[in-house]
Design a protein around this nucleic acid. Structure first.
Lengths: 142, 142
DNA sequence: GTCGCTGCAAAGTATTTGCATAGCC
DNA sequence: GGCTATGCAAATACTTTGCAGCGAC
């Protein structure tokens, strides 16, 4: 269980020529256990409970590293803070204009035309981010 | 030409019970003339050439107002600054991971499944934002 | 004349950077 | 032991807020 999670991270790090540190192991475990998008500050807070002294700059550096290794996806849902999502399968997000809550949407979005348009322009897209905006159920009720 | 642009804004403002001010007229004209997404700071800089003294807080407040009136769309492409896009027709964006450049993609994206998923959860989406990430043509070359 | 809008100044927050130290390999 | 990663501190950048005066209606 945890051993396999650690192993997966260690393999990914070594494959990229990076070192395996306790900070990275803890951060990766926290991401896996959260199972959902979270802000850097939230991830740092939870992780610091297990590894006191863990600093925010390290969290940012590590999350950026993980993103480069394809272990997580950055989600810019419009709120003040960038979110980091351990789900790497294609899925959309819904962000509430009022309360800012961000939820997963388990639905695929066909962005083939957009990808083709990007490639036609000489670019090489590697990820599609889809964010729907509007009012969430709670905010509609109130 | 400009008269019609001004008229369109005045109508939209009055319809919402808002006042028509020179700041709002200038900002709206600048957005229309730019015809593409721009950061608040860029919009402020161009606008201040025509209306010296225009302040950044006013720019932010006005852009937020315009967004509420449906005159522009906010684009969170992942860069440090939020972008504001006068194009309100559905279109996707491409953001370069390396240089941060954001370009328009004239391609429709079918988000019907995601919208249905959001509605199934009780939410009411009113806008879909699609951002592709990867390397732009220039950054691939270098 | 009223009330909303603007400008100024300042604060708040998210994120990045520089550098010395610690620890993985 | 070399070289990377971390922690600390500070800096930077974007955006928001409070308040007093101006101006649209």
């Amino acid at each position: 269980m945890s051993a396999t999670v650690d192993q997966r991270l260690a393999d990914a790090l070594r494959a990229g020529g990076h070192r395996v540190t306790s900070q990275r192991l803890v951060l990766y475990r926290v991401l896996e256990e959260l199972g959902r998008h979270a802000s850097a500050e939230e991830i740092a807070r939870v992780s610091a409970e297990r590894l006191p002294g863990l600093s925010l700059p390290t969290v940012y550096a590590t999350l950026e590293l993980f993103e480069g290794l394809g272990l997580l996806q950055r989600v810019d849902a419009g709120g003040p803070a960038t979110l980091f999502d351990p789900r790497t399968d294609p899925h959309a997000h819904f962000a509430c204009r009022r309360c800012g809550a961000v939820t997963d949407l388990d639905a695929a979005v066909d962005a083939a035309a957009a990808e083709a348009a990007a490639r036609a322009g000489g670019a090489e897209p590697d990820h599609v981010e889809v964010v729907l905006r509007g009012l969430c159920a709670d905010c509609r009720a109130s």
